[in-house]
Every structure is written in structure tokens, then in C-alpha cells.
Design a protein around this nucleic acid. Structure first.
Lengths: 140, 140
DNA sequence: TCCATGTTTGTAATCATTACAAATTGAAAT
DNA sequence: ATTTCAATTTGTAATGATTACAAACATGGA
């Protein structure tokens, strides 16, 4: 989990995205957070470091990252979009108690993206959402 | 697909829900629509028949139906909740072009709800969302 | 230095949904 | 038939996430 700024910067450059300070911070936060924050949580946290940060910049930047598949957005909660690193080639588990979202690796022809067509419909994306109570919340 | 009012009425009574006129109409519309409308589409359509219908009643009624598993809500679009008949034991396909949502039957241990636990997390719900271009939109 | 373009910012608007309280309904009791 | 009480419906106002938009700012090249 070593993520220095140089690595993050080159990730952006690789996608042809100019590595501004706010973009670096947002990507860094997403990588380190790990629990799929929403736009507002990202904003609140970056604002501690960049007091002039604007919510609009967060939304703009997230759209930019999603377009280049650096980040994916998931709509599991129904109330907001939660963001995670990389393409959504894995599935997601939402804890109904604490709201945390955890990456899940499952294997089947659908989950692995082998199937490109069902009943004549062309499939471009597959999202698997599991909901329940996470390991931590079961114990407490 | 024969759905007369008597059948719909008894469905509600079976769940201990008083079969009011607005509730009957909402359930009837959901059954006949088939393409997973959102709350506003439901409202607009019922309002043609019941001019005094209120949006709040639509939302209240949908929550009621979801609680009794008569209806399920899916958050595939990220912008609204779309509603369909019955428990969500099947998966859903969202057409990115026309916005239609189509029920999809897939079979694997995860989709079939056989797996109740992953990595120590207790699974209560499984939602599979496919996105792409539907059969109709490919042709046109 | 000046210019052009891309980026960031703040404010206002939009849209789905929820909160809330008043009005209405309907069935049971008198 | 009238009263009563709880459930239901309604309309309006609030909330919260997101988008639209235009002004301010930064940066790198001519």
C-alpha cells in the first residue's frame, strides 16, 4: 500500500490528465481511503488540506477519473454515488449497519465478464452488489 | 399476463395491506408497465386516472410495497430508484440508450443466492446489474 | 509581457426524495 | 344515523446530492 505522490502523478499522466494539486490529492485520498467514499466525504477531507477546495472541483475531477477508468462509481446505496479505485472488475459488498463498502472477488462466467451478450442485449458493464452485515459489525 | 383488479386486491390483502384505490392503481401500473418505472413516472401515469393523486402517496405506497417484498427497488441508474414486481431474485439489465430495464435470469452460485457468506460478511441481498445496449436499440 | 487555454471556484439551479401537519376517509361503536 | 378514532391521503416545505454556469485564476508558449 505504498502510494507516494510520484506514483500517483504518473498514473494521471499516463491517462493524459494534467496532474494538478487538487487532482493529486483526490486520487491520493481515494487510494488511501479504501472504503469507497462519496463525493462529499472526499470534499470534506481534502478541504482540510486545501481550504479553497470546491465541491464542484471534486465532482468535475471524479467525472474525469471515471471517464478514464482510473476510478469507478457505484450506485449501491441509492442515495449517493460511491467511488473506488480502478475499473469495477470486482463486486461490492455494502454493510447495512456501518455503510462501509468492501471489494469482493467472485468467479462465475458473468462476474468474470466472459459473457458479452444475453438474450440479444449487448453487455458493456457488470456490477454485482451484495448487501448485508459486515464481519466487523457481526461481532460488535 | 391477465391481471384483473380482484387478483391485485387479494395480493395486497395477503400481505395485510388495506387495498385502497390508490394502492390498487399503483400495483396495477407496476405489473402492467414491466419496464421498471421510477416514482415520478408512476405518479404521472396514475395522476391521469386519479387527478388528486399526490407524489407523497406514491413514495409512501412504494415503501410499503417494498417492505412486504411485493415490489423491489433497484438503484442501477444512480439518479433514481426504479421499481419492479416481486422480490429481486433475478438480475437487471439497463439499456444505456433508451433507459429501459429488463429482467435477466442468470445462474451461478452467487446469483442463485446459494452463498450466504463471503469473507466473514453475512449476505442478505444480491443485486446483479448489467449495463449495455438492448436488443431493440442495437437494431435501430 | 501578453495571450490562449485549461482549471478551479462559488453561487444558483435542478431533481429525487423525505418531513410534516392538515384534511379526508372508512369502519367500528354508540 | 351520528360520533369517534385510526389509518390514509394530500400539499407544501425542507433536504441532500448533483449539475449548470460564469467569473477568477494559473500556466506555458509566442
Amino acid at each position: 500500500m505504498i502510494t507516494n505522490m510520484e506514483q500517483i502523478k504518473s498514473q494521471l499522466e499516463k491517462q493524459g490528465i494534467k496532474p494538478t494539486y487538487q487532482r493529486l490529492r483526490i486520487l491520493e485520498f481515494l487510494i488511501s481511503a479504501g472504503n469507497h467514499p462519496n463525493a462529499d466525504t472526499i470534499y470534506e477531507n481534502i478541504a482540510k488540506v486545501i481550504p479553497t477546495m470546491s465541491r464542484t472541483t471534486v465532482y468535475n475531477t471524479l467525472s474525469l477519473f471515471v471517464e478514464s477508468a482510473l476510478v469507478h462509481g457505484i450506485t449501491i446505496t441509492g442515495a449517493d454515488v460511491r467511488y473506488g479505485i480502478g475499473e469495477a472488475n470486482h463486486h461490492h459488498f455494502l454493510c447495512k449497519k456501518c455503510g462501509k463498502i468492501i471489494d469482493i472477488e467472485v468467479h462465475c462466467p458473468f462476474a468474470d465478464g466472459v459473457t458479452k451478450e444475453i438474450n440479444g442485449h449487448q453487455i458493456q458493464e457488470i456490477h454485482g452488489y451484495f448487501k448485508g452485515i459486515c464481519k466487523d459489525c457481526i461481532q460488535s
